[in-house]
């Protein structure tokens, strides 16, 4: 039973992770990450870490990803500019380095003998146990995280509200999108005007 759940969940996790990386649309990427999180939560449940799993869902899925989606929706359909400075050898090197790390880690993980898994009682992974550890042994880390979160909140507010939206002048649009875009816009507005004029002089009542 567990092994089935494990393989299903890890398969989902890997697939969704690939989707996160590969999807063109960041919105879909974010949703894939959501799936990834859910799969990981399942894996954590397998590891009897109920609280972390629940926290994973609440914190990541409930708050972080929501924020992601919000921003992606806010930003709108803007993304990578096609072409550009991509260099094949750079891509190759990146993939190589990443795979090298993976291989190394896997070699280490499967090469080393971890020994017997500790036996745990029912209290393991419960909120009470985690909470106790959090406010006794790891109180400092806990407080540091809270301070960092607070600072991040301030930073978020500053970044989000600091600048005023910039309205591009014609010249800037020209520089960004080229002559044709401006021409297209002019054409469109002229067409709209003409259409409006035609309708006022139209004869038919139907």
């Amino acid at each position: 039973m567990d092994i089935v759940v494990f393989f299903v969940a890890s398969g989902c996790a890997i697939a969704s992770a690939i989707a996160v990386v590969a999807q063109k649309n960041p919105f879909v990427s974010a949703l894939a990450l959501l799936a990834n999180l859910a799969s990981l939560a399942a894996l954590m449940l397998l590891l009897e870490a109920q609280f972390v799993a629940a926290a994973q869902i609440i914190v990541y899925a409930g708050a972080v990803m929501v924020m992601f989606l919000f921003v992606i929706a806010y930003v709108g359909p803007r993304g990578e500019i096609g072409g550009g400075v991509r260099k094949p050898w750079l891509v190759a090197l990146s993939v190589f380095a990443a795979l090298l790390i993976a291989v190394e880690v896997i070699v280490v993980v499967f090469g080393a003998s971890l020994g017997a898994v500790a036996s745990v009682d029912t209290d393991y992974g419960s909120p009470a146990a985690i909470g106790k550890a959090l406010v006794t042994d790891y109180l400092l880390a806990f407080e540091v995280v809270s301070v960092i979160l607070f600072m991040a909140a301030v930073a978020g507010v500053v970044f989000g509200t600091g600048g005023r939206p910039v309205r591009l002048s014609t010249e800037q649009v020209l520089a960004k999108e080229g002559e044709s875009a401006v021409a297209r816009r002019r054409e469109a507005s002229r067409a709209a005007l003409d259409a409006a004029r035609d309708s006022t002089t139209g004869e038919s009542a139907r």
């Binding site: 919105f27 109920q50 629940a54 869902i57 609440i58 409930g62 929501v66 989606l69």
Partner: peptide, 25 residues
């Protein structure tokens, strides 16, 4: 009934909003 039921309810409840957001988007 789990030891973290309340959390699970909160978690699932918050996931519900993805329906709204995804639908809207």
């Amino acid at each position: 009934d789990t030891s973290v039921s309340l959390l699970v309810v909160a978690a699932i409840g918050s996931l519900g909003f993805y329906g709204l957001m995804i639908g809207g988007w």
